[in-house]
Design a protein around this nucleic acid. Structure first.
Length: 421
RNA sequence: GUGACUGUAGCUCAGUGGUAGAGCCCCGGAUUGUGGUUCCGGUUGUCGCGGGUUCGAUCCCCGUCAGUCACCCCA
């Protein structure tokens, strides 16, 4: 351990169990997105650094894995997908019917100090609707995130959606006389409202001519703060999802590019972390690709959600079941007599051809050991091939019931054993 | 980038100023063809790395690297 190589800080090895857990999450992401009619896409892992500077400013470079390639290009490992998506959508926007409903599952890199729920490499699910200005698109994304959480095994007791609308705040600011150029600064103050002391917040608000009380009042009446929120709530209510949603104007999200509704998937009681977040960004595609295209989307990272799954009973049970299913075989062929190894192989391949997951021992081993191996690999069925071949024994390992039959009939007998259960 | 805590077998951790243990895991076995229990046996460590104090350090001190957590940030 002291010698040899280790992973770089913030990078992970995925041993089979880790990989199974990761793939379980991926599978949920993918199936729920497809259930909503989203199609999958992917972009390059390496992009010109300017792509990110354009969106986020020059300081972003400190948090990028960036370098100069052999062609003297300034390049970066992607820290997020949205700029790539904006470029792709803009470049071929005439090729696609609107709205575009696209999702992606990919790996991202950020040069940051790692901590709980955050490494230098992670996977992220991105889900976006482009070319659709209606709040119906925002509601659809919220609904998708709710269904995703439910598919993972979470209930309304485990998480909630905190829904907000940046325009509610910009309207509020305008009414209150905040100059346009101070808007971003104002939103930053709102963003930090929950984390900063009242005194500090009040001090920051003073030069903007706004009182903390008026902010509090506004938040208290969030439900009626904007028409968009009302529309989204009605939409989600019609889906029977009202219980999951809470209007919370505290949410504005740090990003400068959000232009309308924003939301976060928030866990309840396990440390109150945001497990996913997103919102409307109607101007970003234009900024990156010079094409006007309204857009909304959200993203979920693998680290926080996996932590949360492991810490919550029902979701964790589902995860374990999913992992076990992915890592087990269906049938174990016991080579009881080495003389019959070639006949065993014939059976093995026939079963595999039929689509079963099949394992068998590579070297001579006692029958007891082989049954142990069958057990350990999660096989439901063992087929014993021994000296009595062409008679073989088929055993259902769960109910410990076995029958014998001729080798020619074993698949038929197999079905009988699998069905009664 | 800042701070706190931690760093002993593959894993979870004991331990003592005189060169180390337990459990789990893994491997083998329990009168030669039937499995989750049980029993027996076995392997493994430059005690994170470098330096210092000391007759001597895994244990004390400094540094470094790594990990964990918090802050910052969070696309």
């Amino acid at each position: 351990m002291a010698k040899g190589f280790q992973t770089l800080p913030g990078f992970r090895d995925f041993y089979p169990d880790d990989c199974a857990a990761r793939n379980y999450v991926f599978e949920k992401w993918r199936t729920v997105a497809q259930r909503y009619g989203f199609v999958e896409y992917e972009g390059p892992v390496l992009e010109p650094t300017d792509l990110y500077k354009k969106k986020s400013g020059d300081e972003i470079v400190h948090q990028l894995f960036c370098f100069t390639d052999k062609g003297e290009r300034d390049v970066s490992m992607r820290p997020e997908l949205t700029p790539t998506l904006a470029r792709m959508a803009a470049a071929r926007q005439r090729d696609f019917k609107k709205p575009l409903k696209w999702f992606s599952i990919g790996q991202f890199f950020r040069y940051e100090k790692q901590q709980k729920g955050r490494g230098r490499e992670f996977y992220q699910f991105n889900c976006d609707i482009l070319g659709e200005p209606s709040p119906a698109a925002d509601a659809e994304l919220v609904a998708l995130s709710i269904d995703l959480m439910r598919d993972l095994g979470f209930t309304a007791n485990d998480f909630k959606i905190r829904l907000s609308d940046r325009n509610a705040w910009t309207d509020f600011a305008t009414r209150s006389g905040v100059p346009t150029e101070k808007l971003t600064e104002f939103l930053q103050v709102i963003d930090k409202l929950e984390r900063e002391s009242d005194d500090k917040t009040a001090a920051k608000l003073e030069p903007l001519g706004i009182s903390l009380e008026s902010i509090r009042d506004f938040i208290a009446n969030g439900e009626s703060a904007s028409e968009v929120i009302t529309t989204i709530l009605a939409d989600l209510g019609a889906r029977g999802m009202a219980d999951f949603v809470e209007v919370d104007l505290n949410i504005v999200r740090g990003l400068a590019y959000y232009t309308g509704a924003v939301f976060e998937v928030f866990d309840i009681g396990k440390g109150m972390r945001a497990v996913a977040g997103g919102g409307r960004y109607d101007e970003l595609v234009n900024l990156i690709g010079n094409v006007d295209m309204p857009a909304a989307g959200f993203a979920m990272g693998d680290m926080v959600i996996t932590d949360l799954i492991r810490e919550t009973e029902a979701p964790n049970a589902r995860l374990s079941a999913g992992m076990a299913g992915a890592q087990s075989v269906d049938i174990f062929v016991v080579v009881a007599d080495e003389e019959k190894r070639s006949q065993s192989l014939e059976i093995v391949q026939q079963l595999r051809k039929s689509g079963y997951r099949v394992a068998y021992p590579y070297s001579a081993a006692k029958v007891g050991k082989q049954f142990q191996a069958a057990e350990q690999q999660g096989a439901q069925i063992a087929i014993v091939v021994g000296s009595e071949f062409p008679i073989v024994t088929i055993k259902n390992l769960e109910i410990r019931l076995e029958t014998t039959c001729r080798f020619e009939d074993f698949e038929e007998e197999l079905m009988k054993l699998l069905l009664p259960g």
